[in-house]
């Protein structure tokens, strides 16, 4: 039905010539735009309702005194569904430590949260198909689980700022009760809010897919950074680390790179590096972590994401 609508607009309303290159591009653009915005609206709305049942306070209780590994898996999964503003990373970290959540488990949560989220997954699904989206989500969780697990095994508690351990809030914090109607309201506002933030990036990404298509040779980048080049993944990840953006913001670049023949593994590793590691987040976390621990965190993330990139390139 969407397809028919797109071709009706292209050839019926704008009256472009059937089968012309411009006509194809416009039809593709209209179809993809509507499809992705529909997907995004529906999924963000549903995920927002699910998220309202997992406030950070509840997640903290679930993870408190959990054994490592099982704890890391749970934390990575909860990182996907627990809503939290990056501005609350510090109180959240302190709250987790105070509640007895192991350090490595806390990290699994902090890693998965910005990297694996519904916006990233829907955008990948809409533009590259469900397979790429599922692989991104699965490996993102693996990076969070193992990244946190390794940090836990290294016993780095001494590199957490001392004052964190002296906090006594008495755990008096409450969870605000919401009616189902309120959950629906908040989900609606959240959906509108996210769409407002990402729509432009999505239009640009789809525009790149539709219009730049025929202009740069398909294999332009393959010669330099195709599967055959063992340095493609580390270079892409090291380029991505200092860049900071959310999944939507990096999408136009990701689409252009994929379109021009960079292998999926390299591109997904690049996207992970951009979303998972960011300077603003590091600066926020510096308030609770000493420099060596921040360094170890960045190092482990870089290495695991590079490893994931290689695995992608082998299996895809």
């Amino acid at each position: 039905m969407l397809k028919e609508f797109a071709s009706y607009v292209t050839y019926g309303l704008i009256m472009l010539e059937q089968g012309s290159r411009l006509g194809d591009a416009i039809e593709f653009f209209i179809y993809d735009t509507i499809k992705i915005f529909l997907l995004l609206s529906v999924i963000i709305f549903i995920v927002s309702i699910i998220r309202s049942y997992f406030p950070p306070e509840k997640t903290k209780k679930i993870l408190s005194h959990k054994k490592e590994f099982i704890g890391n898996i749970l934390a990575a999964l909860l990182g996907v569904v627990t809503p939290f503003c990056s501005c609350s990373a510090v109180p959240l970290f302190i709250g987790f430590v105070e509640a007895g959540v192991p350090l490595g488990v806390t990290f699994s949560f902090l890693i998965s949260s910005p990297m694996v989220n519904e916006v990233a997954v829907v955008l990948l699904w809409g533009l590259f198909g469900w397979k790429i989206a599922a692989i991104y989500m699965g490996t993102g969780l693996l990076v969070a689980i193992f990244g946190g697990f390794i940090i836990g095994k290294l016993k780095l508690e001494k590199w957490v700022e001392e004052y964190v351990y002296k906090f006594h809030t008495g755990q008096g914090q409450e969870i605000i009760k919401q009616t189902f109607k309120e959950r629906l309201q908040y989900a609606k506002w959240n959906t509108a809010d996210i769409l407002k933030k990402v729509w432009l990036f999505i239009i640009i990404a789809i525009g790149i897919g539709g219009f730049i298509h025929g202009y740069v040779p398909e294999d332009f980048l393959v010669n330099y950074a195709g599967k055959g080049n063992p340095f493609a993944v580390p270079v892409a990840v090291l380029l991505g680390v200092p860049l900071y953006s959310n999944a939507a913001g990096v999408l136009p670049i990701v689409y252009a790179l994929m379109e021009k023949g960079l292998s999926a593994g390299t591109v997904l590793a690049f996207m992970m590096a951009v979303t998972a590691l960011s300077l603003p987040e590091m600066i926020i976390l510096r308030k609770v972590l000493k420099m060596p621990l921040l360094g170890v965190f960045a190092g482990i993330m870089t290495v695991t994401i590079i490893a994931v990139g290689y695995i992608f390139n082998v299996i895809l």
Partner: peptide
């Protein structure tokens, strides 16, 4: 902040926590 909540932004009216964290209310 942590006397009331660990998820910011928070809204406290007369000592009572009325909102915490994301998503924001309208």
């Amino acid at each position: 902040i942590m006397k009331y909540t660990m998820s910011t932004p928070g809204l406290v009216v007369n000592g009572k926590l009325k909102h915490s964290g994301k998503p924001l209310p309208n």
